[in-house]
């Protein structure tokens, strides 16, 4: 029966109509249709609309009526002459620099620790790495708000029990400690991501390199300096760019821990936009302008990222 064309089967096949296949471009269009709608409706259109709003006089009344009067650069002028905006921007940049550096340094250190497969405990540590990442940002905010709370916070309790302090320290009432509290909370939540990437990269370094270095009488530091670090450079660059764009958008921790306080000492760019747009007096035009400034800054970093990571390989 093998080889002999089975009449029943062949007839069945003959009877079936033969189709030319859908051209790849049409198939792609069909398969991407929902995605394209989402991109346009949720991403592209809103981005342009935000730009549009930033050049118009928009308040609550205009939002209701849907009629916006053109105001030129008025929103941007208001924005740039607002000292709080500049303060927010300065805080944001400072926050980005400090938190991203901490993420890289802590991330590297922890990655090296969990990469040591000869120590059994490293397995447990590796298993727990993503725990902070699992905590919702807003919960993370309240969590650290609790720790840094003056009256009943755990940091004060701990320091008192260890004999470092006699009175309650007002962590969140002081601009610099409040700022650091936000940095710590944020970095704690986000550093697992860096650890993960560095760990993955470390695992990609062949053992033979270290063995060769050993034969060349390299010390542990020299091995790190001349083998590990250069080979991790690409991934460090990736995390630097990626984490920078995300750190620029810090919001949840600010919301939960300080609400921008004390005074406006911990205002950041996203918080500025939120406060101006969604709180009285609802300066939506100015909010849109500030959001756009933030988007431009992030956009520059984003383009650097795309060029760095995604241009080498074609899809």
């Amino acid at each position: 029966m093998l080889g002999q064309s089975d009449p029943a089967v062949s007839n069945g096949k003959k009877a079936k109509r033969r189709w030319a296949e859908l051209a790849p471009s049409w198939l792609a269009l069909g398969m991407n249709f929902p995605t394209l709608i989402c991109f346009v409706l949720i991403l592209a259109y809103p981005i342009f609309f935000a730009g549009y709003l930033s050049f118009h006089d928009v308040g609550v009344r205009e939002l209701r009526s849907g009629e916006y009067s053109f105001s030129g650069f008025a929103n941007y002028i208001t924005l740039f002459s607002d000292p709080v905006f500049w303060k927010s921007l300065k805080n944001t940049v400072l926050f980005v620099i400090i938190s991203v550096s901490l993420e890289v340094v802590i991330g590297l250190a922890v990655a090296l620790v969990i990469n040591e497969h000869r120590i059994k405990l490293s397995k447990l540590t590796k298993f727990l790495i993503l725990v902070p990442w699992a905590v919702p940002p807003i919960v993370n905010g309240f969590l650290w708000a609790f720790i840094f709370n003056t009256q009943f916070g755990y940091l004060n309790r701990l320091l008192y029990q260890m004999g470092f302090i006699e009175e309650q320290v007002i962590w969140l009432g002081n601009p610099s400690t409040a700022f650091m509290a936000i940095v710590i909370a944020y970095v704690w939540r986000t550093v697992p991501f860096n650890i993960l990437l560095y760990h993955a990269a470390l695992q990609g370094i062949p053992d033979q390199l270290y063995e060769a270095a050993e034969l060349d009488r390299a010390t542990a530091w020299e091995k790190f300096r001349y083998i590990t670090l250069p080979l991790l450079r690409p991934i460090i660059a990736v995390t630097l760019i990626l984490r920078t764009t995300f750190a620029f958008m810090i919001f949840d921790e600010i919301f939960a821990i300080t609400q921008g306080g004390p005074g406006n000492d911990t205002w950041v760019a996203a918080w500025y936009t939120y406060k101006t747009s969604f709180n009285p007096p609802f300066d939506i035009g100015v909010g849109a302008a500030s959001a756009y400034v933030l988007a431009l800054i992030v956009g520059v970093v984003a383009i650097a990222y795309v060029r760095y990571v995604y241009t080498k390989v074609e899809y």
Binding site: I47, M249, A291, L294
Partner: peptide, 12 residues
Amino acid sequence: SRMVPLIVLMLP
């Protein structure tokens, strides 16, 4: 798009 700040999109 992955890196568009959410806050920009919120208003629109």
